[in-house]
Amino acid sequence: MSDVPIRFRAATEETPLARFLLIGGVLLGLAVLLFAPLIVVFFEALRDGALAAVASLANPEAASAIRLTLIVAAIAVPLNAVFGIAAAWFVTKFDFRGKAILITLIDLPFSVSPVVAGLCIVLTFGANSLIGGVLVGHGFPIVFALPGIVLASVFVTFPFVARELIPVMIEQGRAEEEAALTLGASGWRVFFTVTLPNIRWALLYGVLLCNARAMGEFGAVAVVSGKIRGQTATMPITIEMLYNEYLSVAAFSLAAVLALLALLTLTLKTGLEWRYADQLAANHRH
């Protein structure tokens, strides 16, 4: 018992044992729950070698799925960005009754199951519905076609951009815009030269998350797409079809592409958080 402790533990620290157990438990938990599934995607994709994986991506079905997913994202993400900017402008630059209800309604899609979202779109725009019947009659089907997939993608990503912009624009207030107006700038000029530079990183952040979700959406798209091979099968839907046909390498190769996209999204998102923390939504962690 001659050992003299080299350093006393501060009263606001846990014992070394508790600390070790906490860090160890968290590391082990995250390794098993997060990293193992991620690694398995690439492991399974490369099971027959890199050539087989690349070849499976070049097959027409996979190629058409990649094309469709890019088209859907190219329509859904800008739509969402326009909505997000308009909604944030409306909510933060004006005072009106029912603002809280409006914000709740914008957030509503977060608490709706993607499958229920798809169901809602089928019931609204399906061939048996009032609106869908008329549109199909005029040769413009929505469900089991591209417009339905876009609608489903916009529904599930609806709050993404607005949610990022609203807190940032509340924090920035209206003084800068009002000053520009008194100096004679037009509304659009105020938006492009005053507001947009203030919100650009938050906008990019929202668009990034929106894009990741739009390209990866499965449940809502599965319901509205009809899963027609080469026509309405997006990447996630094609992954399901290939997997169910026991074409494991093909399924995991396509999954690996989406996993790489997810990693790229996380990297860019983290980069934005480190670099522009002060210009991102206040309710984030920095």
Binding site: L34, L38, G216, F218, M235, A255, L266
Partner: peptide, 29 residues
């Protein structure tokens, strides 16, 4: 680790689904 915690937000659910199945199926790791 801090960045990786958001992985389930970024990874498409179908990808997570087949990955978890490959991991926990009787012939998985």
């Amino acid at each position: 680790l801090d960045a990786a915690v958001d992985l389930p937000f970024a990874l498409p659910t179908a990808v997570a689904g087949i990955a978890l199945t490959a991991l926990y199926a009787p012939n998985g790791a």
